[in-house]
Design a protein around this nucleic acid. Structure first.
Lengths: 206, 206
DNA sequence: CCACTGACTGGTCGATCGATCAATATTGAC
DNA sequence: GTCAATATTGATCGATCGACCAGTCAGTGG
C-alpha cells in the first residue's frame, strides 16, 4: 500500500483538499473553479470533498477562514508591541508586505473574496488589524513620527492600500515610473516611500 | 407593431445587450454570469447574443472595451491641459473619483477584469492615463506643488490606489476611522487628504 | 415581382457542473 | 479479534451551461 498512499497518512487528505482548494480557487475564483479539478489536484475522489466540507460553499468558506487565521497569526507574531512607534510601524508595514509577497495564492484568493464567493461574507479581518494598527499609528502620531493632519486610521488605510496596489499591479507601477525614466523599485525602497508619505516630511521646493 | 418593438428601433437591440451584459457581468463576473440571464435582461433571445458578439468571450471583451473608451473620453474632457499644475492635479483626481463614483457598475466590472475574464487581457488603460497623468505630476513637482522626494509616477500611483481603495472599501475605512472616534469623511475632505499626502506638507509635531 | 441579406427566435445538443449514494476500506475502542 | 464509526471510492443523477442551427420575418435593390 505504500505506493498507493505514500504522502498523506489517511486523515491528511483533508489538508490536501484544503491546499488544492486554495490553489484552484485562487486561480479561477469560486464560479470558475470546479470540484473535480480540486479533487484531482488533491489526489482524492470528488465525493470526499463533500464528505469533509459539505459542498463547494463550505470548502470555499473553510479555505478562507484558514488563510485569514494564518495571516492573523503571522502579523501578531511579527509585530512586537514593545517596539518604539516608528520601528513598530516600519515592522508592521514590512511584515504586511512580506506576508502577501510570500503568499501570492492567498493574496489572490482574498482579491476574489472581494467580489466572488457564495454569499458575500463580510471578512472579519478589519476587527483585529484595525484595532492594533490604528493604535500603533495613534502612538506614532503622539510621538511625532507621522503627520498630524489626518486621523491615524486614515494614515493606516493609506499605507495598506498603496501596499496592496503595489502587490497586484506592479506592471502599472512600472509603466508609470518608466514614463519619466525612473527604473524599478525594490520592496525596501518602496516601503521607505510609503513611510515618507505618512510622515509628511519633504516640504515642497521653493 | 408599436407595442412589440417600442424602445429599440431594430438595431438598438445591440445596445440593450451591451447594457445588460455590463450589469450581469459586473454583478457575477465572467464565470458567474450566464448568457441566458443577459439575454433575458436585454429582452432578446439568447441566440442573438451569439449572432452579434460571437459568444460569451466576445461579449465580455466588447463590454470591457466600451467602458474603457467611455472612461478615457470622460477623463480627456474633464482635465484641461492649460490649468496650472496644482489645479490640474486637483481636477484630475476629482474627476477620477467622481467618474467611478457615478459608474459603480463599470467600476465593479473593472475589478472583475483584474482577476476573471476569458483570457486575462492586458487592460491598456495604462498608456494614455499614465502618460498624461505622470506629465501633470511632473509639472506640479517642477513648480513645487507636490513633494520632491519621490518620482512623479509613484505619486500618481499612490493617489490612484488610495482613491480606488476608497471606492471599494468604504466599510473598512469607516471601521479604521471609528476606532479613534473619527466619523465619516466626505469625498471632498478625503480628496484634500490625498492632496496633502502627495504635497508632503504638515511636518511632524515637536 | 423576385432574390438576397441580416436581424432575430425557439428549440435542442453535448458537455459539464455540483451533488448524491451505495459500496468498500480503514481506523480505533473494547 | 470484533465491531461500530469513520474515511474513501466510483458511478451516476438531474440541472444547467454555452453553443449551435433551422426557420421566420423585415427590409432592399433590381
Amino acid at each position: 500500500m505504500s505506493e498507493l498512499c505514500p504522502v498523506y497518512p489517511l486523515v491528511d487528505a483533508r489538508n490536501a483538499i484544503l491546499e488544492a482548494g486554495l490553489t484552484v480557487f485562487a486561480a479561477d475564483g469560486f464560479h470558475g473553479a470546479t470540484m473535480r479539478e480540486i479533487a484531482q489536484k488533491a489526489g482524492v475522489s470528488q465525493g470526499l470533498l463533500h464528505h469533509h466540507f459539505g459542498g463547494k460553499d463550505g470548502l470555499w468558506r473553510i479555505v478562507g477562514e484558514r488563510i485569514t487565521a494564518d495571516f492573523m497569526t503571522y502579523m501578531a507574531d511579527a509585530v512586537d508591541a514593545d517596539l518604539p512607534a516608528d520601528e513598530g510601524i516600519r515592522a508592521m508595514l514590512r511584515s504586511y508586505l512580506n506576508y502577501w509577497k510570500e503568499h501570492p495564492t492567498a493574496f489572490r484568493f482574498n482579491l476574489w473574496r472581494l467580489l466572488d464567493g457564495p454569499r458575500s461574507e463580510r471578512v472579519a479581518r478589519s476587527e483585529h488589524i484595525a484595532r492594533h494598527g490604528v493604535a500603533l499609528f495613534q502612538k506614532a502620531q503622539d510621538v511625532g513620527f507621522i503627520r498630524q493632519d489626518m486621523p491615524p486610521g486614515l494614515a493606516l488605510i493609506f499605507s495598506g492600500s498603496v501596499i496592496q496596489f503595489w502587490l497586484h499591479s506592479q506592471v502599472e507601477v512600472r509603466d508609470a515610473l518608466a514614463t519619466t525614466g525612473d527604473d524599478g523599485l525594490s520592496d525596501e525602497a518602496f516601503l521607505e516611500h510609503v513611510l515618507n508619505l505618512v510622515r509628511g516630511v519633504s516640504a515642497p521646493a521653493t
